[in-house]
């Protein structure tokens, strides 16, 4: 049961079995680097690249809610951004495809111990650009029940969404979140249950951004994205592992209203 939860997220990346080039040595010295890299990158070329910024706090103050920002705006032609923590029981947190969006994403993840947290950024030429850092964390981020399970009110608020958009330089910064327990399946008697797919579409129905989400994203998952086009409204749609769908609409003026209301 637990093993399958650990392995399943990585099967998604097993595209070709061939192993082309030897892995470059891990600057973080992670004991799990070879294991994860061989499964996530599966023979593709990869380089460690400081132009990929992985912003971590100086302390994982709450191991259930650790903010991580990935900023790859210094790179051109970004196809995917995979955020993963080597020593998490569910290593991959998100697999983001910024179709018509900046290669920038912020979210919060759970950590189960001191671990490297990395972003792998796939460019159009098929090369992965990888960066990250170690962060210390107490245990239990993935193996303690979420707060809403303990309070008992998770179902009362399931799928409630909050968010706003801020128009900036012809694009729109979107910040939004969902009420969702994001159960990892690692807590006794609570099966895995998480939001797993997310898409942002514009007023014409064009998909601007897509994301696959795993159970290591924090309870009440929250995201910051920067999509192209400043004409609202933007639609945020998500589906969880039980097939429930959540949808919200963010007006282009919503952020400006918040600023004005201050």
């Amino acid at each position: 049961m637990q093993l399958s939860r650990i392995i399943l997220p990585m099967l998604a990346f097993a595209a070709t079995p061939a192993w082309a080039a030897p892995l470059p040595a891990d600057p973080l010295g992670s004991p799990m680097w070879d294991y994860h890299a061989s499964r996530i990158f599966e023979g593709a070329t990869l380089v460690f690249d400081d132009r990929v910024k992985v912003i971590l706090p100086v302390i994982a103050e709450d191991q259930h809610v650790v903010p991580v920002t990935v900023d790859a705006r210094a790179l051109q032609g970004v196809q995917r951004i995979i955020l993963f923590a080597d020593l998490n029981p569910i290593p991959v947190a998100i697999d983001y495809r910024p179709l018509q969006a900046a290669p920038f994403v912020a979210t919060r993840i759970k950590l189960d111990q001191r671990t490297p947290v990395r972003a792998a950024v796939l460019l159009a030429d098929g090369v992965w650009h990888v960066a990250g850092g170690w962060i210390d964390a107490a245990g239990g981020g993935c193996s303690a029940p979420p707060a809403s399970r303990v309070r008992g009110d998770w179902a009362d608020h399931l799928g409630e969404m909050r968010g706003a958009g801020w128009v900036d330089k012809g694009g729109m910064r979107l910040r939004f979140g969902f009420r969702h327990p994001m159960d990892t399946g690692l807590v006794e008697s609570i099966p895995a249950y998480n939001i797993e797919e997310l898409a942002v579409t514009d007023a014409t129905g064009a998909t601007l951004a897509k994301m696959t989400i795993y159970g290591s994203v924090a309870e009440d998952p929250a995201f910051t994205l920067e999509v192209q086009g400043a004409d609202g409204p933007m639609t945020v749609a998500a589906r969880d592992t039980s097939g429930l769908e959540f949808k919200g609409s963010i007006a282009a003026s919503s952020g400006q209203k918040l600023v004005a209301a201050q």
């Binding site: 706090p57 100086v58 302390i59 103050e61 969404m161 909050r162 910040r175 945020v236 919200g248």
Partner: peptide
């Protein structure tokens, strides 16, 4: 800086729930 980042962790999710408008439904 250390205490600021800790305080962000303590307060930010609650402030978002208070200050960001509901969307959807």
């Amino acid at each position: 800086r250390y205490e600021l980042q800790r305080s962000v962790s303590h307060f930010y999710p609650g402030l978002e729930a208070e200050l960001l408008p509901e969307i959807g439904r």
